[in-house]
Nucleic acid binder design. Sequence first.
DNA 1: CCGGATCGGGAAATCGATTTCTTGATCGAA
DNA 2: TTCGATCAAGAAATCGATTTCCCGATCCGG
Lengths: 342, 342
Amino acid sequence: MPTADKERMTTVLDVARRAGVSSATVSRVLNGQATVNAEARLRVLAAAAELGFQPNRMAQSLRSGRGRAVAMLVGDIEQNLYSALTKHVQAMLGQIGLDLLLYNLDHSPDRLRSFLAMAPSLGLRGLALATTDAIPPEFDPVLQGLRRGGMTLLSLGQRLDERGIPSIVHEEQAAGERAVRFLIESGRHPVLFVGRVTGSAIGAERYRGYRAALAGAGLPLRRELVFDTATAYRYSAGYDAVRRAIEAGTGFGAVQASSDEIALGAMAALHDHGRRVPEDVAVIGFGNIDWGAQMRPALTTLSVHHDAVAAALRSALENAEAGTEVPMLTSIGRSLIRRASA
Amino acid sequence: MPTADKERMTTVLDVARRAGVSSATVSRVLNGQATVNAEARLRVLAAAAELGFQPNRMAQSLRSGRGRAVAMLVGDIEQNLYSALTKHVQAMLGQIGLDLLLYNLDHSPDRLRSFLAMAPSLGLRGLALATTDAIPPEFDPVLQGLRRGGMTLLSLGQRLDERGIPSIVHEEQAAGERAVRFLIESGRHPVLFVGRVTGSAIGAERYRGYRAALAGAGLPLRRELVFDTATAYRYSAGYDAVRRAIEAGTGFGAVQASSDEIALGAMAALHDHGRRVPEDVAVIGFGNIDWGAQMRPALTTLSVHHDAVAAALRSALENAEAGTEVPMLTSIGRSLIRRASA
DNA sequence: CCGGATCGGGAAATCGATTTCTTGATCGAA
DNA sequence: TTCGATCAAGAAATCGATTTCCCGATCCGG
């Protein structure tokens, strides 16, 4: 057995002894609930300070039934969308004294399942599900079970409000329509659409925006211009789609991607096939990942507002704490960020 | 008061009652310590399964004195270096049943200080400090205090072994030397060096590699070729350095950046000033961020092995748990990943 | 057949903070 | 002056899992 020199932490009892009161009084002073003799209060405060007393979080958690952590489940922390969101959420939680438990789903339903299974025993303050991947319907009972068990559950980025989960999302269809309309009005059509059309509610909404813009301009929807990337929102999907379009001889003056990664993949393909951006082809992405602005040409894209999401999450957590109603849907606007690519 | 319908979780006592034994026996069965009557064991197992029993983590933590979370403090989760590392660490922790508590330092010593202050009361299983920012010496007492208090503390990415903190790092000087030697041998000199030379131990090591390569080739160290980016390892530092070099009329055939972000900023500046990469100027980065391969031209860089870091962290945690010695320094090699930019 | 050894398993203590419970005391009104 | 009320504050219960502690029973060698 290794010499356990783990010097015992100072407890509320140590403080009590030093201040010549009972542990109950120490607790009362530190939590400012009941009235305590002013002079005793000072002694307790002094004792706590002198001993550098820090209440044991584990004990507090056990007693109160909930810890001080909020879990956030992200699709893939390596993607800028999630890491940027995580950054804002962590900062917000820090401000209200909560810890962030991060769980990387890696796009795997199994990982989601296994986390949800152990979630109830964790004593979480809240659970934020941040993934754009579709959540299979078989999860609904588990998710609702958690909510009934008192868990504050929120979806970030994906609308699950119709499945009973309060959601904080960005507008998708209107934003997509705005961007495509801009391309058309700049005379850059035909416009290629590259993104997940099926299999992702968010992708479908963005695609609906594309169609709405076409309809608004009185243009027909041409199937050969739409590339449904079954795989995740990543570069190669954009690269391959554009390569195929070029090889098929399809003429187009712009690419509307449904993610910045796809847009950058598309730009790489355009480069490799001798098309100049934006002279020959304009490109617009979705999501404003941080290095889109560092590319040459810099990427035009649709904004994202992680700070607003974090703020909405905060108020949801606070409402839940206070027993107030949590809004089922919070929607955040996007704007077109014009840079060199379109 | 909101109707608290938080259905009580099933406890070890519920299981005990159902199996007709005492809670002690349930615990013995579930933890496989002492011997338990085979038939009773089965009853307990069955009862636990039927009730879907999940031991309350908070109670376990209080009892055992430590929770099941490992905290990781990162410089800035939005940077690919950290998000990629986080991904691997989280996956590794998940495998051994531990949770990841993520704390974003945002390059602020104050945030580090405030986290360290509350760390002892958290009951952490371990604490991984992952930042390339210099840790001011005034932190040493706190850090050592944590270690003496039994905390498993590790530095990831930055050598702090000489300050008494076990460190898991990548080789820096040898890797930098390798890259610069490659540039010189390809006839691409003079080589510009852009990166943190002072104020960052890691940057200094990479710079030492640059000088070593020069010395090895019998070339002089020319001050006008070295750009010390006082600010963080980000794009604009690389952009500005190259812009200034060009405007100053300094001739050069390559840029060795001390991060991929700097390299990409440098490439943007080269592009904006009509220099072609790699025809006119070769560029090598450091760190292999995921989208360096998506650029055109794709970025040549030095590898990073987050999986190896996570594995080393794992074995350190396991050693600490077992009371075994934790190695003070683990060093991981880097190799040159040749892509189009050099 | 007996006494020490081994074993299975329940009762109770423990971890540390908070929240009842309770009691002694002070206060105010009748 | 006295009795219910208000109040400060200690003793003890509580949260739930684990770990002593301890007892009765079975075992075995002598």
